[in-house]
């Protein structure tokens, strides 16, 4: 199966400069009962986005008309807590294609990569600058070039390389999903099992 390819992304950004945003905030547990991957975006950040009567909370960033785009600029240790991939589905279903931070929780990073959502890690100082500049000018366009592994913003002069391992990068560029990669390796896996004395 193939996924949407990721090559170059150019977009305005949504800033969310909070540390340790956990997956319970990204998608609260009470929305996890579905059995398909669709439609989680409508409950993304549910309890920060809507009050208990279902009305929009005006100053939450997703409800502010000046901010939009497909890049979420987050704070440190983004996506900590529960392993729920629903968090990534919600972010992607809402329309984000990349999340920028200075650090991600491990499981979140894997889940994102497995769903074609690109986690981009940049140094802390750069992240603070970028967040501040977006705050001052929500129209700033950020460009993420996966092939060259560089994130730039012409208006601010920012230009930072980012790391990603080459296997993950190739998967994203080509849209190949990792499950197909493993399924194609089944005979090798069977050999491994035999070397350990059988699948038991």
């Amino acid at each position: 199966m193939n996924r949407r390819k990721f090559t170059i992304l150019e977009s305005t950004c949504v800033p969310l400069p909070l540390e340790n945003v956990d997956t319970d905030q990204i998608i609260p547990a009470r929305f996890l009962s579905a059995t398909s991957r669709e439609e989680f975006g409508k409950n993304l950040f549910r309890d920060w986005r809507y009050d208990k009567n279902g009305n929009e909370i005006k100053d939450f960033v997703l409800n502010r008309p000046e901010y939009g785009g497909s890049i979420l600029v987050a704070g440190s240790n983004f996506g900590c807590g529960s392993s729920r991939e629903h968090a990534v589905w919600a972010i992607a279903d809402y329309g984000f294609r990349a999340v920028v931070s200075d650090s991600f929780a491990d499981i979140f990073r894997n889940n994102a990569l497995n769903n074609g959502l690109l986690p981009v890690e940049i140094p802390t100082g750069m992240l603070s600058d970028l967040t501040e500049q977006i705050g001052a000018n929500p129209g700033i366009i950020v460009k993420i070039d996966l092939e060259r592994q560089i994130i730039t913003a012409d208006e601010t002069g920012m230009s930072v390389p980012f790391a990603i391992n080459s296997f993950r990068k190739q998967c994203l560029l080509s849209g190949l999903d990792n499950i197909s990669f493993l399924v194609n390796m089944r005979s090798r896996i069977i050999e491994y099992e035999k070397s350990r004395g059988g699948p038991g």
Binding site: R84, I107, N111, I179, M185
Partner: peptide, 22 residues
């Protein structure tokens, strides 16, 4: 360790997952 649903699918499909060594 904990994994996401895509990785659950990997394990069901192949009894393996792709994982960087921590």
């Amino acid at each position: 360790f904990g994994i996401g649903t895509s990785e659950v699918e990997m394990v069901l499909a192949t009894q393996c997952i792709l994982q960087a060594r921590p």
